[in-house]
Structures are given as C-alpha cells and as structure tokens.
Simulated scan of single mutants.
Amino acid sequence: MSEPLLEVDDLTVQYETDDGMLTATSNASFSISEGEFFGLAGESGSGKSTLAKAIIGGLDDNGQVSSGTITYRGEEIQDLSDKELSQRIRWKEISWIPQGAMSSLDPLQRVSEQALEIGNVHTDLPDEEIRDKLKETFDIVGLQE
C-alpha cells in the first residue's frame, strides 16, 4: 500500500485570545490517497475551515498548530515557513475553496461576464476598462486570462 498523499494526524489547532488559549480543532486525524475524493462535513463552527487553513498555513496570526502533524507527500509541512509554503505547496499543490464559494461566483457563467456585471454595478467604467482591470488583477495573482 502506498503512503497517503495528505495525512493529518492528531492535529490540534488553538487560537490565543484575551481569555487564554481557545481550542478550535482537537485531535483531528484523516488521510487522503492519490486520486481519492475526500469531503469534510460538520456543523458550522466545528473546525472544517480551521483544518483547511492549518493545512495551507493560512491560520490567523493568533492561531497555531499546537500538536499533531500534517504530512504532504511524505514531508511534514506544519512547520514550514510562509515563504516555503507559498513557493512549493500553497495554491500550486494544495488549495482551499471556502464553504461560501458557490454563492460568490456562478460556476456556469464565465468569470469575465460576472466581473463585467460587478464592474457595471459598482463603477462607471466602460466595459473595456473593466476587462483591462480584470486582466491586470489576474496577472497580479498569477491566473491565466
């Protein structure tokens, strides 16, 4: 049997608050194999987003992985620097789609059409200028037109 693509083992995530440490996720464990589909379900506030953010190194400044490991392709990644994660893994190998994403963009409509609609509602810019700004934004974040 091959090693898992992603393995979360006994992961606990805590946030520092004015009242002390708050445990957001406690002792979470799962593994995902290459080619496997994986869904994480739970009630609102149960820690799904916290787990995803911990995996991609996107916890808020007051958040930390206090115990456990996150292993990707055989390498523990929970202690990698922000720069290392960005250069090697984050958004290249592992991405996160927030739970409200389906209400943000219509998956059946072109992004350019939605951007024009948003631009027309919130600006007085002509369509061509809105398209140019969209292309510029895509370039800044590294997306293809």
Rank of each mutant, 00 (worst) to 15 (best):
D61S: 12
D82P: 03
S95C: 14
G74F: 08
Q64I: 06
A24Q: 02
R88N: 15
D106W: 11
V13S: 01
E136I: 05
S103K: 12
Q64S: 12
D10V: 06
E36C: 10
K53I: 04
E16W: 12
S112Y: 02
S29I: 10
I94Q: 01
V121N: 07
K83I: 11
G63H: 04
D61F: 11
L40M: 14
N120C: 06
K133Y: 07
G57W: 02
Y15T: 04
S29F: 13
T50W: 02
H122Y: 15
D139I: 07
E3N: 11
R90Y: 05
S26P: 03
T25C: 10
R88V: 08
E117L: 12
T12K: 03
E7L: 11
E93P: 00
E93W: 02
D127S: 13
V13F: 00
S86L: 11
R88G: 15
L80P: 00
T17S: 15
F138N: 00
E16N: 11
D60T: 09
E16Y: 06
D106N: 15
G68A: 10
E84M: 10
V111Q: 01
E75G: 04
I140V: 12
L59P: 00
V111I: 15
R131I: 15
L143W: 08
A28K: 00
D132V: 06
L134S: 05
D124S: 13
G68W: 03
S46N: 07
I94W: 01
S31F: 05
Y72G: 02
